Computed example of a mutant assay.
Amino acid sequence: MASLKNVQPDAFVTLLVDCQTDKDFLSDLERIKKYVNEYIIVPVEDCVPPIAKSRYIKTSMRKYVKGDFLYIDADTVWNTPVSESDFTHDVMGVLDGHCLLATHPLKKEIEADFKRVNCDPGVERYVNGGVLFSKDSSISRAFFDLWHKKWLQTSETGCFIDMPSLNVAFKEVYGNDVPLLPGVYNCQISRSWKYFVKAKLIHFFTGWMTECGDKAYAFQRKAFWEFVRTNGLDDSVVDMLKNPLSAFAIPIEICDGVDLELRKTATYGLLRDMFERKIYGKRSRFDLVEKIVGKLSAIFDGG
């Protein structure tokens, strides 16, 4: 919200919270409310698990927000203002991973989610739920009613993810011709950097932060958020919000397709875990493995 107000000061921000959050996080919310134009408490039944309440609100938000709106996940930072001419359909989103589901690097994991919640939307265009445009229209209201209904059904599995049910709604309303926002509205940097330079909104996925927070992009690092919780939005943080294209904390390099495929392997995951443990002073067998591999390499090179 702070970054949005920086790039678009006249933006009208609506914040929706459940009753319990309104009671339990009053001091935190008071600091947040200075960026908010409209604050709405949504009645969510006590039987809904805490982890599910945000999804309950998200899938039913069309009931509580008047007018056209652009829904935004919290793990995002704004780079440039919106262009209202881009909002051409009743409900719009951006492809997850900026690619068709058939070529998605996490296709197997996504299909595993479908099985977990007994919900396969059967779509080619799998839309990410982090940024969604909604017109205040009968079509949009029907869309959200369907999404919420389907999400309630999938939640009975004990898994509260909302993207399979979201894409069921897209499929039933639009078929295979799902209307898409330009990729710059949801630049998913953990998936692709294709839209980063011209991004309007950068989606950095804090859910992907590792325990030691070693991601290259500052907003993905656990240490960054611990600093913000302690110090608030000090000058250094504000400067990053004003320059999100430059918010890198460590050296980075571009990897090609071979490196990306290697990173999906169990071998890479094992070695990386051992190396990470070594760096942070934990017990690790990395030095032993490195020594063995070095000797094997010398033998093969010599041959």
Rank of each mutant, 00 (worst) to 15 (best):
K149H: 14
W151M: 06
Q153S: 10
T157K: 03
C159A: 10
K149D: 14
K135N: 10
D145L: 09
G129Y: 01
E156F: 01
G130E: 03
E156K: 08
G122T: 08
I139C: 08
E124M: 14
D145V: 07
D145G: 00
V131N: 07
D136M: 09
L152S: 10
E156P: 01
R141N: 12
S137K: 08
V127C: 15
K149M: 13
G130V: 01
F143P: 01
H148E: 01
G130L: 03
G122M: 13
A142I: 12
T154L: 00
F133K: 03
G129E: 03
H148W: 06
R141S: 14
V123H: 06
L132K: 07
I139T: 10
E124V: 13
E124Q: 14
S155A: 04
N128G: 15
R125V: 04
C159R: 07
K149P: 01
S137R: 11
D136C: 13
K135G: 07
V131T: 12
F144K: 03
S138Q: 12
K135F: 10
F144Y: 13
D136Q: 10
E124T: 15
A142C: 15
F143L: 02
S134Q: 09
G129H: 03
T157E: 04
R141T: 12
C159K: 08
F144L: 07
F143Y: 04
F143C: 02
R141W: 12
F160Y: 05
I139M: 10
S137C: 14
V123Q: 07
A142N: 15
V131G: 05
I139A: 09
W147L: 02
H148S: 03
L146R: 06
L146S: 02
L152H: 07
G122F: 08
G122C: 10
Y126S: 15
